[in-house]
């Protein structure tokens, strides 16, 4: 997106004011409204879709496979596909890396263990159909919902197969399936937030024009107990990135801490709501 110099300075000055004025008048901690639907893909273990009012859309499907634990390096594999970008492009592999690494480090793979030899391997496949701003936040929210709605078939064979080698067998009844994340567990999948820095202000969920005038960007992880790693900085605009102050880091930390709880609450209430799987 190319802005004229006058537009750019108008947007930048508005965002750098105290208090800041965002171009769509949102508060610094306010997300754009989302539209979510869950469990609509019949052949996957869990699925979710989130749309934004500007047409941005992301679909995530979670599938599982039984593997010999010794044979695989990671029990979670993320694959991101962004329409209009090559799969081996920097843009896509960066998104992939961020999602993969936060799941690797903050998802307890113990829940995927079936027997002493076998485990579930889960495949998280993400498609971004359309995006106007940096899609990592959207991808992360959708992945969260998809993981929350994932169910795995119930194991009926013996758990201890160390002495007698046995292939795991599962119950035919899908109603008996167990959720990947038990409803009573304290553990929740991790989230990633994108924060833009303009002047001394920080903004969550920046829109495209906000990104364009931003001086810096941050990717911040969040889990139930608070802000977690990673705490990366990225360039959200094509222009040169300015340095970051300690103030920005503190402000961003507080912002994510403030939003994170509400976002989790909103997402959990969506994930719980099973009735009516209308997706269009």
């Amino acid at each position: 997106m190319k802005l004229s110099p006058a537009e750019r300075s108008y947007l930048h000055d508005s965002l750098a004011l105290q208090p800041p004025i965002r171009p769509d008048a949102r508060s610094p901690a306010q997300f754009r409204p989302l539209e979510a639907s869950i469990s609509f893909l019949p052949s996957s273990n869990g699925s979710a879709r989130i749309r934004l009012s500007d047409g941005s859309e992301c679909i995530v499907s979670v599938k599982s496979k039984v593997v010999l634990t010794a044979n695989v390096s990671s029990l979670i594999l993320v694959d991101v596909d962004v329409s209009g970008y090559r799969d081996d492009s920097n843009f896509v592999s960066n998104l992939n890396y961020h999602l993969q690494s936060i799941l690797n480090s903050h998802f307890p793979t113990a829940v995927l263990r079936l027997t002493s030899r076998y485990s579930f391997k889960i495949f998280v496949d993400c498609v971004v159909l359309l995006h106007t701003s940096y899609p990592l936040g959207l991808l992360s929210l959708t992945t969260y919902l998809a993981l929350k709605t994932t169910s795995l078939p119930k194991l009926v064979s013996e758990v201890n197969d160390e002495e007698v080698e046995e292939q795991p067998t599962f119950s035919d009844d899908w109603d008996q399936s167990t959720p990947l994340i038990p409803t009573n567990s304290t553990f929740q999948p991790p989230l990633l937030f994108v924060v833009a820095v303009v002047g001394d202000n920080v903004f969550i969920d920046p829109s495209r024009e906000e990104q364009e005038v931003s001086e810096n960007g941050m990717i911040i992880g969040y889990e139930t107990q608070g802000v977690i790693s990673p705490f990366n900085n990225i360039s959200l605009s094509d222009r040169e990135v300015k340095g970051m102050k300690l103030l920005h880091v503190i402000k961003a930390h507080l912002l994510v801490k403030k939003c994170g709880e509400e976002v989790l609450k909103a997402l959990n209430s969506v994930a719980k709501d099973e009735g009516g799987n209308a997706i269009f």
Partner: peptide, 13 residues
């Protein structure tokens, strides 16, 4: 003030 709102897709008519 709410920081996020997540709605369901409007039911088709």
């Amino acid at each position: 003030m709410d920081c996020i709102t997540i709605s369901k897709p409007a039911a088709s008519h």
